[in-house]
Write a protein that binds this DNA or RNA. Structure first.
Lengths: 231, 231
DNA sequence: GGACATGGTTAACACCGTAAACTGATGCCG
DNA sequence: CGGCATCAGTTTACGGTGTTAACCATGTCC
């Protein structure tokens, strides 16, 4: 019954998701592992370090969600899948999504940790790449890919955080519709008219058979790889 | 040297802004007031209550920022001022802006407090009203005002939080430019072409004389009305 | 066998929010 | 005026937090 980093992180992850951030205390964590609190300091220098590593895992999973978009065969498909998978991650792992963006508040740390910051940059780069690709394919209006990617990212992120804060009085299904609708409004401005029209149709179709099978290519939920995942 | 609610909130506000949320402890707060911690419970039932009231003040100031937009003489002006003042608040009171959206994390409370939630709704309604007005004036494309307002709100909010997290490698001046540019991209989709063109010109002008006087009508920074403000 | 690293223990420190009991002043009422 | 409640502060204390120090058992290598 060794208590390695892996198992600690797994239990911490579970604690975080099931009981919330404030329940993630060293003593509670140790109790779950059948050990006393100071033992944890053999594996992690501090509680903050645990949270930071958790954030790292959350970012990795996030990245895996996005990377699945590369299974799309056309730039348009990959672009669209990126958006879908972004939303999928946020809705399937809301606590982690919040953790990604609130970590410094939760820990009392001023800045996002450098490695998390770097990971965020990688995610940002991925979106930029999909935007550039879509521009080159004539699907988005020409422009600065970084700037357009930022706009898209900000819009999606903003909408999601507002929803997760409970400020949108709607359930998840309603939010998915709303998200699509809002994204379409944005696309109207940055996409070429032909594609914007296609998106509008797609959105309408999705709204129609919302109770049907999930849109293909989105894939099944991925677990947060932190111990209890396939070993 | 009475220690009324007003003074407590004022000192708590200062502590929050200067030292960060984690520094806002009952003992530290009491020390600043030349008093011991339990004395604070004569005026506030709990620390959480203090934070909630602080959030309330932050929301009030936020609302005052937005309401200044009503000084605009045309719907277009009021619409534009709303966006500017939103940004002004976020940049002049970043800690409060974060507090507005992170309060439940900071306190370990699951949901935003009802009154704060209601205040958030009022702010939302204000934006919806400006959007409706702009639509009626033929400045925005016709559509559902609530939906369009949400899109605008999400975009602004997302961009700002990303910036405040330090994920955009730029300073404040750079961010202001970037914010305008991004907003313009969004407007391209939801505004009527004539107005989008006007905004583009405005953005270009603003970028040109960025070191000049602030655009008229935005007004001077407002203090957070919490004690040290004019009594 | 002895040195040494490893991973756990217990005890303790300083801090946290908060409750209970007590103290001193202040004002009101018979 | 005496008595008494009320208010605003105190001291003390409890159970919680992250973290450290000192100690102890185990296994591994020279």
């Amino acid at each position: 019954m060794s208590v390695d980093r892996e198992r600690i992180l797994a239990e911490a992850s579970d604690l975080l998701v099931t009981e919330g951030p404030h329940a993630l205390t060293m003593r509670a964590l140790a109790r779950r592992l059948g050990v006393t609190a100071p033992a944890l300091y053999r594996h992690f220098e501090s509680r903050e370090r645990i949270v930071v590593d958790l954030v790292g895992e959350a970012f990795d999973t996030f990245a895996r969600y996005l990377y699945r978009a590369l299974e799309g065969r056309t730039p348009a498909e990959r672009f669209s899948l990126t958006g879908r998978n972004y939303l999928a991650y946020a809705l399937e792992h809301p606590r982690y999504y919040e953790l990604l963006h609130a970590s410094h508040n939760l820990i009392g740390v001023e800045q996002l940790h450098p490695e998390a910051q770097q990971c965020a940059c990688a995610v940002g780069q991925f979106i930029v790449d999909r935007v550039r690709e879509a521009m080159d394919a004539g699907m988005l209006k020409p422009g600065d890919p970084e700037s357009v990617a930022r706009t898209i990212w900000a819009h999606s992120h903003g909408l999601i955080t507002i929803y997760l804060r409970g400020l949108l009085r709607t359930d998840e299904a309603g939010f998915r519709r709303l998200f699509l609708e809002s994204t379409w409004q944005l696309m109207e401005g940055i996409a070429e008219p032909a594609f914007a029209e296609a998106m509008r149709a797609e959105a309408a179709a999705a709204a129609a058979d919302e109770a049907g099978a999930p849109p293909d290519g989105v894939g099944r939920p991925l677990p947060v790889e932190v111990g209890e995942a396939p070993r």
